[in-house]
């Protein structure tokens, strides 16, 4: 697929310094002889092709694999959203048009799940990213045992769901939970964590934060590695405090990565699934669905109630919702970067 690059020779030397764009043209060079000229032309043609087509070669593996394994499931889900179909017999579908979508308007459970997803998303994502940024900053210091800290903060991401379930059930149990035991000790009333809307959403959020803070920390840390040290050194010479360095050097340098984590966390929060499932033990998200997220609702609709078409419609609604959020982000960042005169 990229063979032409492998064979491609460097462009002829001696001529005008070739620039990336527009590609240097072979005709501008003096013509020493027909043979050499042909070779030079071939070289420069290769160079032009290289510049023109290598970007496509670089991105094509992604799109090829996506077309093979991502596109069909995506389109199929969209197609089944327009049908009444059972999870048990997905090959037999009955066309219903947009009914699976329109019924969501009157579906109180959908709106509840949407609200839950939004509130849990906010109370889990914001502190998570802020903490991750702070932790990454600290981990970027020269430290003894920095490897230990790096591995330690990423362990929640690797810890098995079974282990996490066990531990969080012990923490948040109503009668036998460690947290309620501690509350009792200091004279505060026990909390039925699962039963209340806020208490359960708070509990789910703590699981999300526990699980993903280290993940984001590591992403920030990698980006911080690319910030030149002498920026800090000269700032230090100018007498800037650590805090000022963080605000004026680290943060601006991390802007693309911060944008990345915000986008990814937004997507993750919208699709939130594993943590509330772990907390409840089933996809109901509580006896009154008080912490059922869109992801859980979709899962329940598909795998418990066995309505593939309706579940697919919820999936596509989530997809469209994310696209709307994406457009809002885009408009906002456009506006911000215009006003600050920068890109990205």
């Amino acid at each position: 697929m990229t063979t032409e690059h492998r064979e491609a020779a460097p462009p002829a030397k001696g001529g005008a310094a070739p620039r990336p764009t527009p590609p240097a043209s072979g005709t501008a060079r003096p013509a020493p002889g027909p043979k050499e000229q042909r070779r030079a032309e071939r070289r420069s043609r290769r160079y032009r092709w290289d510049l023109k087509y290598s970007p496509y070669a670089f991105i094509s593996p992604f799109f090829l694999f996506f077309a093979a394994f991502g596109l069909f499931p995506l389109l199929y889900t969209g197609w089944s959203a327009l049908h009444s179909a059972s999870m048990l017999t997905p090959n037999e579908m009955e066309w219903v048009g947009f009914e699976n979508f329109t019924r969501l308007w009157e579906d109180e459970f959908f709106w509840k799940a949407l609200r839950n997803t939004f509130t849990i998303g906010i109370i889990s994502t914001v502190p998570q990213l802020l903490m991750a940024l702070g932790l990454a900053h600290l981990l970027n210091y020269r430290l003894r045992g920095s490897m230990f800290f790096r591995v330690a903060i990423l362990t929640p991401y690797a810890t098995s769901i079974a282990a996490a379930t066990l531990v969080f059930a012990m923490l948040y149990g109503r009668d036998y939970g460690v947290i309620n035991w501690a509350l009792d000790l200091i004279g505060i009333d026990r909390v039925d964590w699962q039963a209340g809307t806020w208490s359960s959403q708070f509990a789910v959020s703590t699981i999300v934060i526990w699980r993903w803070t280290g993940y984001n920390t590591l992403i920030y840390l990698a980006a911080m590695q690319a910030v030149p040290n002498d920026l800090y050194e000269s700032a230090a010479l100018d007498g800037a405090s650590r805090w000022k360095q963080f605000i004026h050097i680290t943060l601006p340098s991390l802007r693309p990565t911060i944008l990345f984590t915000v986008v990814v966390s937004t997507i993750g929060a919208t699709q939130l699934f594993g943590e509330p499932l772990l907390f409840a033990g089933d996809p109901s998200g509580g006896t009154q669905n008080q912490y059922q997220t869109l992801g859980l609702y979709m899962y329940e609709m598909g795998w418990i109630n066995r309505h593939l078409g309706r579940a697919a419609a919820i999936a596509w609604t989530m997809f469209l919702l994310l696209i709307i959020i994406g457009i809002i982000y885009w408009v906002v960042t456009r506006w911000v970067s215009r006003s600050s005169g920068e890109e990205e």
Binding site: I59, F62, F63, F66, F69, G70, F72, P73, L74, Y76, T77, S80, M87, P90, N91, V263, V264, I267, T270, Q271, F273, G295, M298, Y299, G302, W303, L308, A311, A312, A315, M318, F319, L322, I323, G326
Partner: peptide, 23 residues
């Protein structure tokens, strides 16, 4: 194309199991 890449992240994964198993 970049937006397309980001768009593909937005597909909830729990349902794609059915068509994937078809394939």
């Amino acid at each position: 194309l970049m937006l397309l890449v980001i768009g593909t992240m937005m597909v909830p994964p729990q349902l794609t199991v059915v068509p994937m198993f078809m394939a």
